[in-house]
């Protein structure tokens, strides 16, 4: 952990010290807000898609402020693709589990009390699956456009 801190402080990539400091404070709040929007999606406005986009924005801010090396260490493109696929698989598996009671996407879990966090059956689980998927895929699209795309435009020479 200490090595990463030192490396972040010494690395020249990314934006200035002011941006890096503010992003370090704001990052936790952004992730917390995104998680709140996802987990309370069945009670208050929001849901898996909106919360997932907020989480993806958090990672994108990290990429813009600290440069691609440190951001890709937090969530690499391989990791993003695994997260994307597991989210999609989880969503489909939840749908298929509905066949235990009759049909596709049956809300087979007990609905619980209204206005409670653990209520709504499969809906919070679906929200979490979609949030995983949206976070990973939007971050992956950003990586592809901003980092891979540089090599295509020819403005930046290939590193390897």
């Amino acid at each position: 952990m200490h090595d990463i801190e030192k490396e972040i402080r010494e690395s020249k990539s990314g934006m200035t010290m002011i941006v890096k400091t503010i992003v370090r404070f704001a990052m936790g709040i952004i992730i917390l807000f995104g998680a709140y929007i996802v987990l309370y999606g069945h009670l208050t406005p929001g849901g898996g898609f909106a919360g997932g986009v907020i989480l993806a924005c958090g990672y994108i801010i990290l990429t813009l402020a600290f440069g691609k090396d440190i951001a890709l260490r937090k969530l690499s493109d391989q990791g993003a693709s695994i997260m994307d696929n597991s989210g999609a698989l989880a969503f489909i598996v939840i749908g298929l589990l509905g066949y235990t009671g009759g049909y596709f996407f049956l809300n087979f879990i007990d609905h619980g009390k209204r206005f409670e966090l653990f209520s709504g059956g499969i809906i919070p689980l679906c929200n979490i699956a979609i949030a995983l998927k949206v976070t990973a895929s939007l971050f992956a699209i950003f990586i592809a456009l901003a980092i891979f795309g540089k090599f295509i435009s020819g403005l930046v020479e290939e590193e390897e």
């Binding site: 999606g41 069945h42 009670l43 208050t44 406005p45 929001g46 849901g47 809300n107 609905h111 619980g112 209204r114 206005f115 209520s119 709504g120 059956g121 809906i123 929200n127």
Partner: peptide, 10 residues
């Protein structure tokens, strides 16, 4: 029917 109080998500 869904147990979700947010109708849109339901």
């Amino acid at each position: 029917k869904t147990g979700a109080t947010n109708v849109v998500t339901g």
